[in-house]
């Protein structure tokens, strides 16, 4: 991620923070509504700088998430790669959307992500059977505006292009 262009550090820092936020211990209620921070950050970078951060980087972040969370190796990676792919394809439209409309798209992307994870868990017979499983995409959507503004500030400060 360090590269020819400047600002790789900003991407790296945001990714590390997202990974840390994913595993930070929280109370029982909060951990059920904890959004998928990594997916949110991946969506942002895919939208903002698709030339630098796209399917490959998203896939790698997913792989790290798999190791960190002890899930099946490749599970988060596949879901993340697909989310990154859709975001890169939509990035020009996403950029001109107002924030609430971006939020709806993010909801769709996060639901797809969650659905894929559920599907793989189902294949290996570990399917969670609670409706609360669908809360993280909604909390992700609600947190999107703040994530967006914060990361945009970071991107402008470090001049990531």
């Amino acid at each position: 991620m360090y590269g020819r262009q400047q600002g790789g550090l900003a991407i790296l820092i945001s990714m590390i923070l997202a990974l840390a936020l994913t595993v930070i211990p929280m109370s029982d209620v909060l951990r059920l509504i904890k959004p998928e921070w990594c997916a949110l950050v991946v969506i942002y970078w895919c939208m903002a700088v698709p030339g630098r951060f796209s399917v490959g980087s998203g896939w790698f972040v997913g792989l790290l998430l798999d190791v960190l969370q002890g899930s099946l190796l490749g599970q988060h990676a596949l879901a993340m790669a697909l989310v990154a792919y859709i975001t890169v394809n939509l990035h020009q439209r996403l950029r001109v959307f107002p924030v609430w409309q971006q939020g709806l798209t993010v909801l769709m992307l996060l639901s797809l992500y969650q659905l894929l994870l559920l599907w793989f868990d189902g294949i290996i017979g570990l399917q969670p059977k609670a409706w609360t499983y669908w809360l993280p995409p909604i909390s992700g959507m609600l947190l999107w505006p703040w994530t967006y503004l914060l990361l945009r500030k970071l991107r402008r400060y470090y001049n990531v292009t």
Binding site: V55, G74, L78, A81
Partner: peptide, 13 residues
């Protein structure tokens, strides 16, 4: 790239 990565992920899983 997506197709290649998806195939790798399935193989890994």
């Amino acid at each position: 790239r997506l197709v290649v990565l998806v195939l790798i992920s399935i193989l890994l899983m």
